[in-house]
Amino acid sequence: HNLTITQGKLFFHYNPKLCLSEIHKMEEVSGTKGRQERNDIALKTNGDQASCENELLKFSYIRTSFDKILLRWEPYWPPDFRDLLGFMLFYKEAPYQNVTEFDGQDACGSNSWTVVDIDPPLRSNDPKSQNHPGWLMRGLKPWTQYAIFVKTLVTFSDERRTYGAKSDIIYVQTDATNPSVPLDPISVSNSSSQIILKWKPPSDPNGNITHYLVFWERQAEDSELFELDYCLKGLKLPSRTWSPPFESEDSQKHNQSEYEDSAGECCSCPKTDSQILKELEESSFRKTFEDYLHNVVFVPRKTSSGTGAEDPRPSRKRRSLGDVGNVTVAVPTVAAFPNTSSTSVPTSPEEHRPFEKVVNKESLVISGLRHFTGYRIELQACNQDTPEERCSVAAYVSARTMPEAKADDIVGPVTHEIFENNVVHLMWQEPKEPNGLIVLYEVSYRRYGDEELHLCVSRKHFALERGCRLRGLSPGNYSVRIRATSLAGNGSWTEPTYFYVTDYLDVPSNIA
């Protein structure tokens, strides 16, 4: 807008934040220059609390790290170098490059900038070799853009010569660093050979998330399962459950009422301010606690030095998902009996873990797994792929695949051998790939016309006998059925096997 004052003059007093240069501009645009008398524009009460600059400061050096910015700028000295009290560095987070010096300023003089007072450097006698002032900004957020400017702080001049310097606002972004852990990993099994893994992005990506790394490792069953005799009275049979499938998407929606109208769909109840505040506090606490764990609990591995020492970490090797089922080394339970199943799973520490690289999504279907087997899954978020990966501390989750139908069934015939004193040795093959492992066998036998009897055969007993022995049988026709019990439950009964026990007292003698 054009402003013209045809008559009258300007009068400025007691404006401590208004620089004289701005008042002189007002004289020019209003056409009143030359009308004012000496005392109409006070030299001592206008701009006496402001830094009124008329020179431009330029930054000469900028260096960044993930949490620091090192700045240096060209030296500046007023005509009387004693008038320079120091520099004021202003900075704040700036997602967009549209910041002005006066953003967030209120009537009390406060604003949204963080201000650092910096002492002037030592003055050199040689004007050509003056030290460049600077400042190291610490405690910054990774991968965050900051708006920065600097200006001088000078003393009051009796001659009211307006001098000083100020830089333009520059924008500097800190470097990326390792992201925080992925949030809320959930693993479920939808079949006997697959596990579905879902997660949420890290709360602090500290860069642009480029991919996720998912490692999985087959877990050995508890050692007590191999040692305890679950045929003993009072000892509860062990059981394991597989990871249940995901709930429906509708039930997972946030901010939804727990109660549904019987007449149909209901609208979600909005969260109160107290609920939102509580969630923010919980989120802040979780982030602080995660940072504490990362800094205190997890110790970084030592990389190899120039002395030739090897990095103890196993090298990563990509495998196809079809090879995942046989990740671990199978060892027989008892070496003397080769027909026992290889369900003991000690994992070799030198073995390469299978892994998958996930790009542009937060889910993965891990296939080719062994049925009813526990897996430990390790999830890392990465925001750099080359020249070397920059990934987060791992988040861990466990899951067990679903049982395989008929995996616990005894394959092959049940054979028998009759000894003296009416002892019958029953023999059968253990299931080759049971659900988890076989903890015991149930032997059901009966003599024709009598009630059915049951015998429990422990895992250890089966390994020693290759089956079991029935003792003290009365003469007669017998039928026997056997079924295995694994961590997933009972298998199917075998087809009945028949044998006849004679009275050993009636056996004919070869003595003449």
Rank of each mutant, 00 (worst) to 15 (best):
S203G: 13
P205V: 02
N206Q: 02
H211P: 01
H211M: 04
Y212T: 13
A220R: 05
D222W: 14
E224V: 07
L225K: 05
L228W: 12
D229N: 14
K236S: 07
L237V: 07
S239F: 08
W242M: 04
S243G: 09
P244S: 13
P245C: 09
F246N: 14
E249Q: 14
Q252G: 10
N255W: 12
S257K: 12
E258L: 06
Y259F: 05
Y259T: 12
C266Y: 03
C269L: 04
C269T: 05
K271E: 03
D273I: 14
L277Y: 06
E279D: 03
E281C: 02
F285M: 03
K287T: 04
F289Y: 03
E290Q: 03
E290M: 02
Y292A: 03
Y292V: 02
V299I: 13
R301V: 06
D311L: 13
R316F: 13
S320Y: 10
L321H: 08
G322D: 08
G322T: 10
D323P: 08
N326W: 10
A330S: 15
A330M: 09
V334N: 06
F337E: 12
F337T: 12
T340H: 03
S344L: 09
P349K: 07
P349L: 09
R353L: 09
P354M: 12
V358A: 15
V359C: 08
N360I: 08
V365P: 14
H371V: 07
Y375K: 01
Y375L: 12
I377M: 05
I377L: 12
Q380F: 15
A381T: 13
N383Q: 07
E388W: 08
Y396E: 02
V397N: 13
T401R: 00
P403Y: 03
E404T: 11
A405P: 03
A405S: 04
A407D: 05
D409A: 07
G412M: 11
V414W: 02
N422K: 15
V424A: 05
P431M: 02
K432S: 08
P434Q: 04
N435W: 02
G436D: 13
L437K: 06
V439R: 09
L440M: 02
D450S: 10
E452F: 15
H454W: 02
H454L: 05
S458G: 15
K460G: 07
R469F: 11
G472C: 08
G476M: 00
G489D: 14
G489N: 06
S492G: 09
W493R: 01
P496C: 09
P496F: 15
P496S: 06
T497F: 03
Y498S: 07
F499Q: 02
Y500K: 09
T502K: 06
T502N: 05
D506P: 11
V507I: 15
S509H: 15
